[in-house]
Simulated scan of single mutants.
Amino acid sequence: MSKTLQYLYDPLCGWCYGAMPALAKLQGVAGLTLELLPTGLFAGQGARAMDADFANFAWSNDQRIATQTGQDFSEAYRRLVLADRQQRFDSGPATLALSAVAATAPAREYDALKAIQLARYVEGRDVTSAASLVAILHALGLSDAAALLAHPEPALVSLNKARTRQAQELLQAFAARGVPTLLLESAGQRSVLNSSALFANPAALIEQLAAA
């Protein structure tokens, strides 16, 4: 029986970055379709200035994520991203980039998300910059998505809004708090899975999905 796992995320969410190794393994579960949906949680009204207090909070939280997941939050990220007072905490541009990928090469959205996260958290690059995001997509061979992002047309903006609206409606419908959130659809039924398993015991989560 086919199953769909909807992964609700934000590209600037540290816990979503921490979940990427487990997510990679989930892609290999037989009979499971993985659907990525950006929530826009840290875009628009959810964006904010990167002041010293927020940067310190983010770094402290990132270290906790690193301890639990083994994911790298580099000094380059701390110095070039968190210490940059001109760079806002705004996932809007990265979310739009991922929608450009969804529009042109949907099977590559995971690859694009991973590359954007590595660019930010390891390389210390500004993924709130459209030019930086276009370069990342080009490096992945996603030239159509890069061209779309370089000159966004109304269709891309509409798609982006529709994707984030769908994700937000799902969060509300299932009273899910924050991201990452996992929704499993099987036999016509949809349920929320405990996303902490992405960090604590991904093997058990994979077994649960395989048996669902």
Results as ranks from 00 to 15, higher is better:
78 R>S: 14
5 L>A: 01
36 L>M: 14
212 A>I: 04
108 R>P: 02
104 T>V: 11
58 A>Q: 13
22 A>L: 04
54 F>V: 12
127 V>H: 02
186 S>K: 03
184 L>C: 06
148 L>H: 11
173 A>D: 10
79 R>G: 08
42 F>L: 15
146 A>N: 00
19 A>V: 08
96 L>I: 12
55 A>L: 09
115 A>D: 03
92 G>Y: 13
7 Y>R: 01
145 A>V: 01
131 A>S: 15
7 Y>M: 05
62 D>G: 05
26 L>I: 13
80 L>K: 15
164 T>V: 08
55 A>W: 12
46 G>T: 09
172 Q>L: 11
46 G>S: 09
149 L>V: 00
190 R>K: 11
124 G>R: 09
81 V>Y: 07
53 D>Y: 12
113 L>Q: 04
204 A>V: 08
82 L>Q: 11
172 Q>W: 00
130 A>C: 14
17 Y>C: 07
208 Q>P: 02
167 A>V: 06
182 L>W: 05
198 L>D: 04
197 A>V: 05
37 L>E: 08
141 G>I: 04
42 F>W: 12
16 C>L: 09
30 A>S: 10
158 S>N: 13
205 L>N: 11
120 R>K: 08
159 L>F: 07
86 Q>W: 05
184 L>K: 04
154 P>M: 03
34 L>H: 01
72 D>A: 12
52 A>M: 10
197 A>G: 05
102 A>S: 14
93 P>N: 05
